[in-house]
Amino acid sequence: MGILFRLIGRVPAALAGVMLFCGAALADCAPGLVDIRGDFGTVRFRVELARTPEEQARGLMFREEMPRLSGMLFVYDRPRDVAFWMRNTLIPLDMIFLDAAGRIARIHENAVPLDETPIRAGAPTLAVLEINGGMAATLGLDAGDELRSPAMPQDAAAWPCD
């Protein structure tokens, strides 16, 4: 019950209910889902995977909306210093840069739609999670929080799939 009171103060009540429900149901990793845990608690996102160069180049371009607690996960074959831009991307996004262990290294909040300025990870990055702009702050996501997904390598994961 303590988590409920902490969340209600930081997150709209409807979203807090979703987070609590997800927290109870996070027993398994599943394709198309990612879980993030941190001081805020735990949250689950439904994601599309962008693994091929073609999928990664297209990303979330031309989308006019994205459901709440949804996103796109870009997974690379090895850690690298990546840069993203918002070419042909119509909705603001939060870009969550993840290290090889699945820990959040950096969050770029509210990337501006259609802006072609490169947004650099600034550190070796194995994956990037894009979610709706402002969602990272709403949920209280921060550097050091851990992501798990069956799409990520499990051998070095800070929070592996069971």
Rank of each mutant, 00 (worst) to 15 (best):
I8F: 04
R44K: 08
P124E: 04
A25I: 09
T89S: 11
F97R: 07
A25Q: 13
M72W: 11
N110T: 13
L129T: 02
T138L: 12
E48C: 10
R46F: 10
A143L: 06
F84Q: 06
E116D: 07
A100M: 07
E130P: 10
N132D: 09
D35A: 06
I3K: 12
M72R: 12
A101G: 02
F74Q: 07
C22M: 11
E146V: 00
Q154E: 09
M135G: 01
R46K: 13
W85P: 04
G17W: 13
D81S: 12
R87T: 03
T138C: 10
M66G: 11
A14I: 09
D35Y: 03
W85F: 02
A27K: 06
C22R: 11
R103C: 09
G23Y: 02
M1E: 08
R58I: 07
A127Y: 03
A27D: 11
A100I: 01
A157T: 09
P113E: 07
G38E: 01
T89C: 12
N88F: 03
V43L: 00
A121E: 09
L7C: 05
T138M: 14
G102Q: 08
A151G: 02
Y76T: 01
D115P: 02
L7E: 04
A143G: 07
V43D: 02
H108E: 11
M135R: 08
F45Q: 03
V75I: 09
P150D: 00
R63P: 10
S149M: 03
R6F: 04
C22L: 09
